[in-house]
């Protein structure tokens, strides 16, 4: 433990981990929806910093770009459109908090325990040779070309689906009217 804490990398890690933990807790327990969404921003940003620690630069900036830039904005729009209570309210949780806590604890225990048992003493190199974009490109368009294409199809489907879902419902009479006109 003492060895670990002596490394500066680990200090950074620890700080970042605490931020993430705190923000994560805020996300799931905050009564204010906007606060929750913004806490997610904190989580994401910290995660990106951790990625940097792990020499995954490209992934880190993609995370910030996509998640923080687009997804979270989407979330904020969604919150506003569904007239979610933006102010304080009594509780955003339901009756099943107990069950949820138990389940979460169980999951944590499982995962943490498995991880500790399996990888308890594995050392990794943190900041070092970065994984360059070039390497990633080679990999994406080389070995993982097919998954890449499939993911783009997923995006396309999501796009179309989103449009279809968000369209205003028209009655068949109005449909006919529109096409005629």
């Amino acid at each position: 433990m003492a060895d670990w804490i002596s490394l500066p990398v680990n200090w950074v890690f620890l700080v970042l981990a605490l931020v993430i933990a705190f923000a994560g807790v805020k996300v799931v327990t905050s009564r204010n929806l906007i606060h929750a969404a913004l806490s997610l921003v904190g989580v994401l940003a910290s995660t990106a910093a951790l990625f940097l620690l792990l020499s995954a630069e490209f992934v880190a900036w993609v995370l910030v770009l996509v998640y923080v830039g687009a997804v979270l904005v989407l979330f904020l729009f969604g919150i506003m459109i569904t007239r979610a209570p933006m102010g304080r309210e009594v509780s955003l949780d339901n009756e099943r908090r107990g069950l949820a806590a138990i389940t979460a604890l169980a999951t944590f225990a499982l995962l943490a325990g498995t991880s500790w048992v399996a990888f308890g003493d594995v050392e990794i190199e943190g900041v070092g040779d970065p994984i360059t974009t070039g390497d990633l490109a080679d990999s994406l368009l080389g070995r993982y070309l097919i998954p890449f294409e499939i993911v783009s199809f997923v995006l396309l489907a999501a796009l179309i689906g989103g449009i279809a879902l968000a369209r205003k419902d028209r009655s068949p009479a109005e449909e006919a009217e529109r096409t005629d006109a």
Binding site: A100, T103, A104, F108, S115, V122, E123
Partner: peptide, 22 residues
Amino acid sequence: MTLVQFLLLSSLLFSLGVYGLL
């Protein structure tokens, strides 16, 4: 850095997400 610290962190985050989900 150890691997396991990241794994623990990710487990924590995941569990928090599960709690929030439920």
